[in-house]
């Protein structure tokens, strides 16, 4: 069974791990390791946004008729995170550890409170709204994302 509500929270944890790996390389000023670690983190964040915006949210909106509600807010927060990811990419390219640290701290807070809203509110609402379709969507989403350690 792979419901979106199981696949996506697991992938949140996976992105957390990738975030830590990149941040630790930057803190050690190990830029050779930081660049690929950050690229992997950013790729997975973008894949996650894509899975939600292209697959899960449209299905939820079609099933509930709510297009201006929670999904709109989640899309807005994705935009905020994309902008912070761009700032991190610039800091990484410039090898500016201080800026990277400050922006990473900001991104982490935004990311965590965003995940909390999705996991505690939006995903359970999706489960309810999507019914039998959920499993098929879960498989589609699972194929878009890199599996974590577990």
């Amino acid at each position: 069974m792979s419901l979106p509500t199981q696949v996506l929270p697991d992938h949140h944890r996976h992105c957390d791990d990738l975030f830590v790996a990149a941040e630790e390389s930057v803190q050690r000023s190990d830029w050779a390791a930081a660049a690929p670690a950050f690229a992997r983190f950013r790729d997975q964040m973008q894949a996650h946004f894509e899975a939600e915006e292209a697959v899960l949210f449209p299905a939820f909106e079609a099933a509930t008729g709510m297009s201006a509600g929670p999904t709109e807010m989640m899309r807005y927060e994705h935009e905020q995170m994309r902008s912070l990811l761009a700032q991190l990419a610039a800091a990484c390219a410039a090898r500016d550890g201080d800026t990277y640290g400050g922006v990473a701290e900001t991104l982490l807070m935004l990311m965590q409170q965003h995940n909390m809203k999705e996991e505690n509110i939006l995903y359970p609402m999706c489960d309810q709204a999507l019914g039998a379709e959920a499993e098929r969507l879960g498989a589609t989403i699972g194929a878009m994302l890199e599996p974590g350690k577990t």
Binding site: Q87, D98, T99, G102, V103, E105, T106, M109
Partner: peptide, 10 residues
């Protein structure tokens, strides 16, 4: 969005 904002550590 048009101007650089301080990050959390600033």
């Amino acid at each position: 969005t048009g101007m650089p904002l301080p990050n959390m550590k600033q």
